[in-house]
């Protein structure tokens, strides 16, 4: 059964006329995995990409630099993300081309799509992989952040095909360009729309949502802030510094913030600021998975054992809220010379 499946397929998302960063990262991952399987099993491993939407010809062409084959569905019903139709298209392509591995970028749409496709294909799906490996048997091993204090778990899908995975972004340096001279194939896919789900509106989120991912300086707060008042104070400091704010899951659990777009880490945002300043954050792997690519890390924590401190370039052992208040005072007072 496994022999009938071959190759790695990536679901790629576009950003304007180019590719999303996550798409290029996935192509990078796919290339590495393909090379590993090739070496192990002495066989060719084709790498393909899927992109949907009539507006995405340019991104589809770009993908031909990374994949041997690019499958592009240009049906107009696929212009805007429609979970049922998109899943139908992807599933149809998987059934037609039978890749042994299918990869999606973890994210609100990617995770929904991957789950839907996995259910239709009755196969296994691992979520938010931070590392991918091929084991001796040629199986994909997905490493995910497990529940608990800084524990990673391996997930395998030994007996079902394809092996599906959503991959946490920001883990791999995305290749800027590729050397493949892939083939662009316009795919005619039979889309059955039973009319139970219809798109009625689409609106951009504006700058705020992207702010965190594009910001050069991020000021993040965690459970160590102790209360909502201190969170609001952190927001004030971020404002004064021109920094974007981010948080950890406990901050959401405590309802100091209700916007999960601010959460950094697994199931949240991956960021790559030049400077990351983490206040009252212990640094569990759930969160730190989202700051792998941060430049300078400054951490403030009362607990000298905090994991985030071990990862930081500048480690401040002190009371987060008090230091935030003091920083605000210094900035406002204009009294900055030491």
């Amino acid at each position: 059964m496994e022999e009938a499946y071959s190759g790695i397929m990536v679901y790629a998302e576009a950003a304007g006329s180019g590719l999303k960063c996550s798409a290029r990262e996935l192509m990078g991952h796919a290339g590495i995995l393909a090379a590993k399987i090739q070496e192990l099993e002495n066989k060719q491993v084709p790498v393909s990409a899927v992109i949907l939407g009539p507006q995405n010809l340019e991104p589809a062409k770009t993908l031909t630099g990374f994949a041997g084959r690019v499958y592009w569905c240009d049906r107009k019903e696929l212009t805007v993300y429609h979970p049922g139709l998109y899943a139908g298209a992807i599933t149809g392509l998987v059934e037609k081309y039978r890749p042994e591995i299918v990869m999606f970028a973890a994210g609100p749409a990617g995770s929904e799509l991957a789950a839907t496709c996995a259910a239709r294909l009755k196969t296994g799906l691992a979520a938010h992989a931070v590392e991918l490996e091929i084991n001796r048997d040629g199986h994909l091993v997905q490493l995910v952040v497990s529940y608990g204090e800084n524990i990673m778990g391996e997930i395998l899908c030994p007996a079902h095909r394809p092996q599906m995975v959503t991959v946490q972004s920001g883990i791999l340096e995305p290749p800027v360009s590729g050397t493949a001279a892939g083939e662009l194939i316009r795919e005619e896919i039979d889309l059955r729309d039973d009319g139970r789900l219809t798109i009625t509106a689409i609106e951009g989120k504006g700058n705020e949502a992207c702010r965190l991912e594009e910001a050069e300086v991020v000021l993040a707060g965690g459970y160590g802030l102790k209360n909502k008042k201190n969170w609001l104070q952190l927001e004030e400091l971020a404002d004064l510094l021109g920094a974007a704010t981010g948080c950890t899951r406990p901050v959401l659990d405590e309802h100091w913030v209700d916007d999960e777009d601010l959460m950094i880490g697994i199931s949240g945002k991956t960021i790559h600021p030049r400077v990351y300043l983490g206040i009252g954050i212990s640094g569990s792997s759930h969160h730190t998975a989202g700051i792998q690519k941060a430049g300078w890390i400054i951490a403030v924590n009362n607990d000298v054992q905090a994991r985030l401190l071990q990862m930081a370039d500048l480690r401040i052992v002190g009371d987060g809220p008090a230091i935030v208040a003091e920083m605000i005072k210094i900035i406002k007072g204009g009294n900055t010379s030491t």
């Binding site: 490493l143 990673m152 899908c157 403030v300 930081a312 500048l314 480690r315 052992v317 002190g318 003091e326």
Partner: peptide, 27 residues
């Protein structure tokens, strides 16, 4: 279809950094 494999501790991060403590004002 999916099976768990091994559980592994997260890799400890080894980084050179400066540590400091002091008064709130100094920090």
């Amino acid at each position: 279809p999916t099976k768990p494999g091994r559980l592994l501790p997260a890799r400890p991060v080894v980084k050179e950094g400066t540590i400091m403590s002091g008064t709130v004002g100094e920090m």
